[in-house]
């Protein structure tokens, strides 16, 4: 079974213990034929980026419900840049207020998916971004 498979890292940065959403997304991407690496709760940005390197993923999906997204999401982007990684699409999800979204997009988070998002929209977004 050769051929390109989209590999996605679903990671939970920060200290909140709510991984229901992350698991639902992971499951949906799995069912869409992707290989999903799920690393569990409470990951530091450093852990997330190192994992993304070793697993050679196409996409990092960050899930956060603690409100620390304005700190942790840019930190992940910074570390990716430090490691000269430009070919990974980063998306985010969780409880993220509307007014924070433009700032997150500015640092390079390509898609933000808040509660209520149809998982099909996430799948479509990833398929379009990863060629």
């Amino acid at each position: 079974m050769e051929g390109k498979k989209i590999r996605v890292l679903i990671a939970k940065p920060g200290l909140d213990g709510h991984d229901r959403g992350a698991k639902v997304v992971a499951r949906a991407l799995r069912d869409a034929g992707m290989e999903v690496i799920y690393t569990g709760l409470r990951q530091t940005p450093e852990q997330i980026v190192e994992t993304a390197i070793q697993e050679d993923v196409d996409v990092i999906g960050l899930s956060i419900l603690s409100g620390a997204h304005t700190h942790l999401f840019p930190k992940v982007m910074e570390l990716l840049k430090e490691n000269n990684i430009e070919d990974i699409v980063v998306i985010g999800g969780g409880v993220i207020p509307e007014e924070d979204i433009p700032e997150l997009k500015k640092v390079g988070i390509e898609g933000i998916f808040t509660p209520g998002t149809d998982t099909h929209d996430i799948i479509k977004f990833i398929r379009e971004k990863v060629k």
Binding site: L29, R30, G33, E35, V36, Y38, G40
Partner: peptide, 16 residues
């Protein structure tokens, strides 16, 4: 579906 959920890393977080 050809998809997979790879979850072995959950038990190896400290090693990352």
């Amino acid at each position: 579906t050809g998809g997979a959920l790879l979850g072995d890393r959950i038990r190896m977080q400290d090693l990352s």
